[in-house]
Design a protein around this nucleic acid. Structure first.
Length: 664
RNA sequence: GCGCCCGUAGCUCAGUCGGAUAGAGCGUCUGCCUUCUAAGCAGAGGGUCGGGGGUUCGAAUCCCUCCGGGCGCGCCA
């Protein structure tokens, strides 16, 4: 609601300035620091003053006089040496908020642009850990935000089922454990197979460390897997598929769903790389190095591909600033395969996967997986996106740049511009937490503010362990408060709280912040947390539940039968009604925050908003006892306000993937 | 060496296009449960926005420089 008025204000100002002063200015707007200065302001006259060489207040005065009526804005005022401050029509805003609060996302138009969001992407060789949870939480919330704004979105979770990490675990099963394919198949059917692989993976790292010659096993194994040969490939397939199922189950616990699992095995088998290689060669995007250290490799020039102005000088080593795409032995690097995959996402490769059903989420939604031949009918039209977001941690930004440079070098400039690396910093552990996990810290590590998670070393907090701990902690709190509630209900509440705490914790930090994980912070249910926000919703609902118990016939009519418009205007009028007005304003600002979050690709903005709204409501809840309100019109007004806040808060939490329980 | 990110209250972090008096949580201290649930509320205390220079009517925000920290830069992924 607020953003509608804001953009109307901007546009009107811009047009007036263009007409009257023949200047084309992007109009900035902001929230004034205090409510007495209005709800919306623009400092545009300061900018205009420079161009016109006149005093800002004078221009502001002129504009305020000439602008005329703007829908939703009651009046304009000039203040603070040249600001244009707008005062909104409070009752109109309030009724608009009542009418629209909590509305479902707009359904995407059939011709709406299509977005692909790739996230999660966990190597299928071990259990998911806390770092993977950040990736999935960010990706999933961003998907929710995009859908909320009416975009078509396809969620892909790329499975590197033929990579070294899977090969390492296969080495463990074959060469350390001496297992056959049938043995591994039996193990994979057991519970927590991802946990046993987690341990095995760490032991394989030690196994290599004890005798460097053993690393040769990795290469052989990898080759067998890539070429789909014998028991090795079978074991890799069994392991990776079983672990992908574990990952889906883990992510389902926090409400994360996918549309498609594209796998590296199909990228190989369906020769995606060959198609990309042809294009790259034809367009001269890569060249065969004939001399120097890269002799025999196909390389991509990074400086020219990235569109750098200055070509490499004569004194510059031609081997520098290139990226090897095809090794001298003819095998393609990971980046090469990624370029092919990126081209496919945009429908530029000229090839497609086959698809079959892989899993059905609890919601009934089907997850499809790529396959090389056969395939099932009924698959949606995957790929062919207009916009691609790759949710990958910041350590891979160089490689993401190479991929985009490859797309650009093929002449697909528009697609290169629409290839977004949704980058974020990793989750590390505080030294205290690492020690708590049984990890021996070096003196150096103990001094640091955080310690890197390492799957290879087996150092990390496993996602399911964390979820279990959160649910147990939440359950303890629920049991204290609701001894009479049935078991299943208590469990459901504890689950909702655990997810609320976890997802809020992972999403409240902006992407560029390294999260130093600590159980104490993550298990907190107080202060700036998910449960705090959920609790505000529960409080609001309790008012209505109690009201219904007292007066079963009472129906809150949101169409404004009660109270009278004059009464609403009076209750919202400054200064006495400022508290109510401030709440209505905040409740009506969800759209503004969603726009900002999508624009900045920053779900943290929504976490911040949800907390602010919850906090404002808690404050209001404490100050105004609604059910004991004697003035019937005022009571209804307070109920209407509460209802609007509750719906907007539920909506904001839903964008974060957090559900509010009925009780807490 | 080159590239990217970060440095804001004791701690952990917000601060979106440069805008009016720099905010929140935690922790500390003081109050508030006979009330629509205290997973809460109110109050107190806490700042050289890493240092220095510059641009600007205006800088935590932009530019330069220095200091401190993280990450990347492989015929690994």
């Amino acid at each position: 609601m607020y953003h509608v008025i804001e953009s109307r204000f901007r546009q009107t100002l811009r047009e007036l300035i263009r007409r009257r002063y023949k200047a084309d200015i992007t109009v900035a707007t902001e929230r004034p620091p205090r409510l007495e200065m209005g709800e919306l302001a623009s400092p545009v006259c300061f900018e205009l003053a420079k161009r016109l060489k006149r005093a800002p207040p004078q221009i502001a005065q002129e504009i305020a006089g000439a602008i005329g009526k703007i829908e939703g804005i009651a009046r304009l005022e000039v203040a603070g040496g040249g600001y244009l401050n707008a005062f909104l029509e409070r009752p109109a805003f309030f009724s608009a908020v009542l009418a629209r609060a909590g509305k479902e996302a707009v359904a995407p138009a059939p011709d709406a642009s299509k977005n692909i969001v790739e996230h999660t992407n966990i190597n299928p060789n071990k259990a998911a850990h806390i770092g993977h949870l950040r990736n999935a939480a960010l990706g999933d919330s961003f998907v929710r935000l995009l859908r909320h704004t009416g975009r078509r979105v396809e969620v892909q979770n790329y499975i590197d089922n033929t990579g070294v990490q899977v090969a390492d675990v296969v080495v463990g099963f074959v060469h350390m454990e001496r297992k056959t394919a049938a043995d591994v198949r039996a193990l994979a059917a057991q519970a927590r197979f991802d946990y046993s692989c987690w341990d095995l993976y760490a032991r394989v790292t030690q196994f290599y460390g004890e005798d460097p010659a053993r690393e040769g096993l990795r290469g052989e194994t990898l080759k067998d897997i890539e070429e789909g040969r014998g028991a090795t490939a079978e074991i890799a397939e069994v392991v990776s598929t079983a672990i992908v199922r574990c990952h889906l189950r883990t992510m389902e616990r926090l409400g994360v769903e996918y549309d498609l699992l594209p796998r590296e095995s199909e990228i190989l088998r369906l020769k995606f790389w060959d198609a990309a290689f042809e294009q790259l060669k034809q367009r001269g995007a890569i060249r065969l190095a004939t001399s120097g250290k890269n002799a025999g490799c196909w390389v991509m020039e990074m400086s020219s591909a990235a569109g750098a102005q200055d070509p490499p000088g004569p004194d510059q080593d031609p081997d520098e600033d290139v990226k090897i795409i095809v090794r001298s032995n003819g095998t393609v690097t990971y980046v090469g395969k990624d370029i092919a995959y990126q081209l496919w996402k945009f429908g530029l490769l000229g090839r497609d996967f086959r698809y079959r059903r892989f899993h059905t989420h609890a919601s009934g939604h089907t997850v499809w997986v790529s396959c090389a031949d056969g395939g099932e009918s009924g698959a949606p039209a995957f790929g062919k996106a207009d916009q691609v977001y790759n949710v990958i941690d910041s350590r891979q930004s160089y490689l993401q740049n190479v991929v985009v440079a490859g797309v650009r070098a093929l002449g697909f400039t528009a697609q290169a511009d629409r290839s977004m690396h949704f980058s974020y910093e990793v989750v590390a552990l505080t030294p205290r937490c690492a020690a708590e996990m049984g990890y021996e810290l070096s003196a150096e590590d103990a001094q640091r503010s955080f310690v890197e998670v390492s799957g290879r070393k087996g150092l990390g907090v496993k996602a399911d362990d964390l979820l279990d701990r959160l649910e147990a902690a939440a359950r303890g709190e629920v049991d204290q408060r609701h001894q009479q509630a049935p078991e299943a209900e208590r469990e459901a509440i504890a689950h909702a709280i655990a997810i609320g705490a976890l997802r809020f914790f992972l999403l409240k930090y902006t992407r560029s912040t390294v999260i130093a994980f600590d159980f104490k912070d993550a298990l907190s249910f107080e202060g700036e947390t998910g449960p705090y926000c959920q609790y505000a919703v529960v409080r609001a609902r309790n008012i209505f539940r109690k009201l219904h118990e007292q007066q079963p016939e009472f129906v809150l009519d949101t169409r404004g039968v009660l109270p009278r418009q004059e009464k609403i205007a009076q209750l919202l009028a400054s200064p006495a009604g400022n508290d109510f007005w401030e709440l209505a304003l905040l409740a009506g600002s969800l759209g503004t925050h969603v726009d900002a979050a999508v624009g900045a690709q920053e779900p943290a903005f929504i976490a911040k908003y949800a907390f602010q709204l919850a906090q404002a409501f808690n404050n209001f809840y404490h100050k105004h006892h609604i059910l004991s309100e004697e003035d019937a019109e005022r009571k209804t007004f307070l109920l209407l306000l509460t209802s609007a806040i509750e719906r907007q808060l539920v909506r904001a939490l839903q964008l974060l993937g957090i559900e509010a329980p009925e009780k807490m």
